[in-house]
């Protein structure tokens, strides 16, 4: 499998030159034409402090820190949760709160709050939650939804609060949003160099 050092020799400058230069880089969006861009970038959490601590521990087991990226929470996944759950996916909140409560109840039976347990015990609880082995129906459904939202938070445009410093896109090798792609940006032979470009421009990339 390729390592970061195997990136092709193309520079970011080379990719953005040529025909792309004819198109304004941010032609796809600008703050004056995206009404939601004016919505608050920092929103109050829809979760309590304790729920948020549980969620942080949970998402950090789904996408743990390794040599390629920080853990999910450090990449802003919880900020993505708060933002999308307050402005779009409000309907998910009851399910997710119930799921967190179910996880916490199971954790307490194992000797403490979920966030305080060792990672093997945390993983065992999540495996049971995913498999539908919690008494509460919200366990499995909530797990599936949380896993999906974690993916969204990690790999969506940083405009939404996650994918902080493009950590998610760097992880999988997605260079960034561009208004037009040059032939080298579709060439095989190693990973493309990172561009670190949000569809919403640098002022809206969340950091």
């Amino acid at each position: 499998m390729s390592k970061p050092s195997e990136e092709s020799g193309l520079s970011r400058r080379a990719l953005l030159s040529g025909s792309v230069a004819l198109v304004p880089l941010l032609a796809t969006s600008c703050s004056s034409t995206t009404s939601s861009a004016s919505s608050p970038r920092v929103v109050d959490s829809v979760f309590t402090v304790q729920e948020r601590a549980t969620l942080q521990a949970l998402v950090d087991r789904l996408l743990p820190a390794d040599e390629f990226s920080p853990a999910a929470s450090e990449c802003g996944v919880l900020d993505y949760f708060d933002r999308c759950l307050s402005e779009w996916n409000q309907g998910d909140v009851p399910l997710l709160r119930a799921a967190v409560a179910a996880l916490q109840a199971q954790a307490l039976e194992r000797g403490g709050e979920f966030a305080t347990l060792d990672v093997d015990t945390q993983d065992a609880l999540l495996v049971a939650m995913e498999a539908g082995q919690f008494p509460a129906a919200a366990g499995q459904a909530g797990f599936n939804r949380l896993l999906r939202l974690t993916l969204e938070g990690m790999f969506s445009d940083p405009y939404y609060g996650g994918n902080r410093h493009y950590a998610g896109w760097d992880l999988i090798g997605y260079p960034g949003a561009v208004p037009a792609a040059t032939p080298p940006m579709q060439a095989m032979g190693g990973r493309l160099p990172a561009l670190h470009t949000s569809a919403y421009g640098a002022e809206h990339d969340g950091h």
Binding site: T28, S29, T33, S156, A199
Partner: peptide
């Protein structure tokens, strides 16, 4: 186009 179309998976 400038308002309604975005390079945004979400």
């Amino acid at each position: 186009p400038g308002r309604d179309y975005r390079s945004d998976e979400i």
